[in-house]
């Protein structure tokens, strides 16, 4: 390090010192709620999930089918033109096997999660979702998968109306 720098500032504090009253502290616990507008495209997308269907949007300028749907094409910067149903099958683009939950707490049974591109949409048009009926040994990038839907009465117009995606069975389309 630079000969001229003799002192590096900073006063280290342990978790115990911070939470155990060794130093004075102040805390806040903000309670704010949000209602995020889903917009034209995602509102329809969520509505279609209740019917067990996946819908995308076609851009006539570049001929891409965008999924999830968007009302504008970010490449052409023009409005998209028509609704297109896509399939509830797809391909695993990538995945992870997570031993952490959303707050970084350890969990015993891992979550299989990844990005999949859906059949019927353009290349690299996909979503993040869970995978099921797989093991660390069997899950693979490039694997064909199919959506496992919640029973119709339990669907609420949410991305979780699909429980997970399972490997496509032999002969299945």
């Amino acid at each position: 390090m630079s000969e001229r720098i003799k002192h590096w500032p900073g006063k280290r504090l342990s978790s115990k010192e911070l939470t155990g009253g060794k130093v004075t502290t102040t805390s806040t616990d903000p309670k704010v709620k949000y209602a995020w507008a889903c917009g034209e495209a995602i509102s329809r997308f969520l509505e279609e999930l209740k019917n067990g269907k996946l819908i995308g949007r076609k851009c006539n300028s570049c001929n891409q089918i965008l999924f999830p749907p968007r009302m504008f094409c970010e490449d052409c910067f023009t409005p998209t033109n028509e609704w297109v149903y896509v399939k509830d099958t797809g391909t695993i683009e990538t995945y992870s096997i997570s031993y952490l939950d959303t707050d970084a707490r350890r969990i015993k049974d891992p979550i299989y999660v990844g990005v999949l591109s859906v059949d019927g949409a353009s290349e690299k048009q996909g979503i993040m979702h869970y995978f099921g009926e797989v093991t660390p040994k069997t899950i693979k990038i490039g694997m064909k998968v199919k959506a496992v839907w919640k029973p119709k009465k339990d669907r609420e117009g949410a991305i979780t109306d699909i429980k997970y995606w399972r490997p496509l069975r032999r002969g299945e389309k």
Partner: peptide
């Protein structure tokens, strides 16, 4: 036809 998704920012 327009949905809202409800949530919070817990921390």
């Amino acid at each position: 036809a327009h949905k809202h998704w409800y949530g919070d920012m817990e921390a």
